[in-house]
Amino acid sequence: MAGGGEGLDNMAALQKSLSRTNRVCSYDRLGEGASDQPAAGTLQTMDDTGALLTGVLDRLAGDRPVVLAGHSLGGYIAARYAPGHTDRVKGLVLLDATIPHLTRDMNRTVPADATGVPAQVRDGAIAVNEGQNPEQFVIADGPVRSAGHIPVEILKHESQYAEVPEYGPALEKMWAGGQREWQRISTRSSLTTAKGSGHYIHTDRPDLALKAVQKVAHRAAHQH
């Protein structure tokens, strides 16, 4: 599941590598890639994008178990979806997934009186969260729900905010805290920093992304 503003080609290399050993499917959400646009003026919620994902899984996997692997917004959607669908989602891989309370944490990290680049980073992120994105999708803050004991691999970037004057370290701390929050999704979750990577972990460290998905798929196939 690709991030916001990305079509299928963004994760095609990872899909190709995985397809040597696993059955792999990907899709463009509404507003992304080759898919239809969402209806003009209507915001998409997690219920909407979740219903679409359910339809995709019904069509492609039937009753068979699946592992969801998502980058950025795709990871956020996978992590929000899994707890309500543990009958079929048997594992998760989150590649620098959008953090669970991004609006709250952005407002806490970059104060209201900030100007210049930090203010742009904060305001840009919050606008996107409110639905100003190609999917017209509201990226809502909310607690992490449990998906029980499914295997979960969480990879976070090493450096993403180095260019943000003054608030770079605080933003990195914010992001790391959000990744730790995602660990609550399962008793079998593991968080790793992908050395040498920025936000696009699957591009910067394809070896680590591949290994994480293979590990979770193997565990999901053999869990009791």
Results as ranks from 00 to 15, higher is better:
A2R: 08
G7P: 00
N10S: 15
R20V: 10
N22L: 14
V24E: 04
S26I: 01
S26F: 02
D28Y: 00
L30V: 01
L30D: 01
A34T: 04
S35F: 04
Q37V: 08
A40W: 11
G41C: 13
T49H: 08
G50L: 08
G50A: 11
A51E: 09
L53Q: 08
L53E: 09
G55D: 13
V56H: 06
L60H: 11
A61M: 12
D63H: 14
L68T: 09
G75P: 00
A78R: 02
A78H: 05
R80M: 09
Y81L: 03
A82P: 01
G84N: 10
R88D: 11
L92G: 09
L94Y: 05
I99P: 00
H101I: 00
N107G: 07
A112G: 07
T115N: 04
G116V: 07
V117M: 13
V121H: 00
V128Q: 09
P134T: 06
P134H: 06
D141N: 02
V144N: 08
K156M: 14
H157K: 10
S159V: 06
A162N: 05
P169W: 10
A170L: 14
W175R: 11
E181F: 02
S186Y: 03
S186Q: 02
T187I: 04
S190Q: 12
K195A: 15
K195E: 15
G198T: 13
I201Y: 00
D204Q: 06
D204H: 15
L210N: 12
A212W: 04
V213I: 11
A217D: 13
R219E: 15
H222F: 13
